[in-house]
Amino acid sequence: MRPLKKETVPSGAPAGRAERAADRRQAIIEAAFETFIEQGFAATRLDDVAKRAGVAKGTIYLHFKDKQALFEELVRSAIVPLASRLMAPPPATGSIRAVLENFAGNFVREVTTTRRGALVRLVIAEGPRFPAIADFYYREVVSRGMAGMRALIELGIARGEIRESGLKDFPQIVVAPAMVAVIWQGLFGQFAPLDAVAMLRVHLDLIFGERRAA
């Protein structure tokens, strides 16, 4: 029998084109991130994003149907994975307070003092004018975060760590200082720096009771 001939992949194969397309898509998302933060949703033009990304405007439409779709993908890539990680399922054992302290530290490190915080502030500022943005952000981020926080609170109540059972109906109370930190950082951080981690720990003292020294 003749030996089988080894198949070769010609240069410029579909895999290479797919990689280049993925690179262009990522460049567009990165350019959109910077442009939305600098100019806001209303003032951002796809021409500006294209120029920053180094692509033709028409290239954007190969990946996203409009500015709204581009913004939604930006939230999916920058915020949704982080929110899912921060709001992991409640632990089978261990302190709920420790989980929330870890959440607070990660939130400050990865949201409050980063570009993600600027993106959250953009949603807060322009969401009322663009309800589709607010609706999308609520469905993809807020509703999931609230469900995860409610699960933690209910577990804390069941374990006797949290005495106020009504807190489960208002998980917003637990995350409120995190949002205050995001807003404060953007508006007043340069004038009056805020120790967001310390503030969140004091907030947890109000919920769980002051931590006793060992």
Rank of each mutant, 00 (worst) to 15 (best):
G54S: 00
G105V: 09
L82D: 03
S11C: 07
R211F: 08
G105C: 08
A118F: 09
P10Y: 06
M179Q: 13
L200M: 15
Q172N: 14
R121M: 09
A13H: 14
A176R: 10
A83T: 14
Q190S: 15
R159G: 01
A178I: 04
I96G: 02
G16F: 12
T59E: 04
V99F: 11
R115I: 00
G156R: 03
R159Y: 03
Q68H: 11
A21H: 01
G94L: 04
Q26H: 08
F71H: 11
F33S: 08
P90Y: 02
F130A: 11
L4T: 13
H63P: 00
L86I: 07
R25M: 00
T59D: 01
G16K: 11
I162V: 04
T8P: 00
E19W: 05
G145I: 06
E73F: 04
F103Q: 10
P14G: 03
G156Y: 05
A27Q: 07
M179W: 14
Q190W: 14
T59Q: 04
R211N: 11
L119K: 03
A151G: 02
A50G: 01
Q190H: 15
E210N: 08
V180C: 11
V174G: 00
A151W: 01
T112W: 00
K51L: 13
F103T: 06
L4F: 13
P3V: 10
L167D: 02
A18H: 08
E30Y: 04
A13D: 12
F103L: 13
R17Q: 11
P177E: 05
A198M: 09
D135E: 14
G127L: 09
H203I: 09
Q26I: 00
R76G: 05
R76S: 09
G127T: 07
P91M: 05
E110F: 07
